[in-house]
């Protein structure tokens, strides 16, 4: 049986913000299906009571002193920008979201 449908692949593509051609969707469906089929072998492995290993080497988070070092100049910050206007990065018009102008703090629109 197939584990993933072309519709799911299209949903994923929206979630991941990837424009995929129909051929890509078809191919991706087959590839993901085969890979998911393969990784399913893991289900037989008993991992009850096993602490998830999120980091390869266990040690505590180091902390940095709250000190300011020189910022990038506005020019350095914007030099790689595909589109800029004055000292701003430029994007297509955003339909105003929460707080009108920001996402963190609030959730994005």
């Amino acid at each position: 049986m197939s584990r993933i449908t072309p519709e799911e692949v299209r949903e994923l593509a929206v979630l991941a913000r990837l424009a995929l051609s129909d051929q890509e969707v078809a191919r991706m469906t087959g590839d993901l299906d085969a890979i998911l089929d393969y990784v399913d072998a893991m289900r037989e492995l008993d991992t009850t009571g096993v602490e998830p290993m999120t980091h390869a080497v266990p040690f505590d988070c180091p902390l940095r002193a709250d000190q300011v070092a020189p910022s990038l100049s506005v020019e350095e910050a914007l030099r790689n920008a595909p589109r800029r206007e004055a000292s701003f990065f430029q994007v297509p018009r955003i339909v105003p979201g929460p707080g009108g102008a920001s996402s963190a703090g609030e959730d994005e629109p």
Binding site: A13, L18, L20, L32, L36
Partner: peptide, 26 residues
Amino acid sequence: LEELYTKTRGEGFGTEPKRRIMLGAY
């Protein structure tokens, strides 16, 4: 904005990164 994201990423990434981005999101 949606097109900025989906087209930029659709054009910019090759097949293997796309495959892994999709599997990872899944």
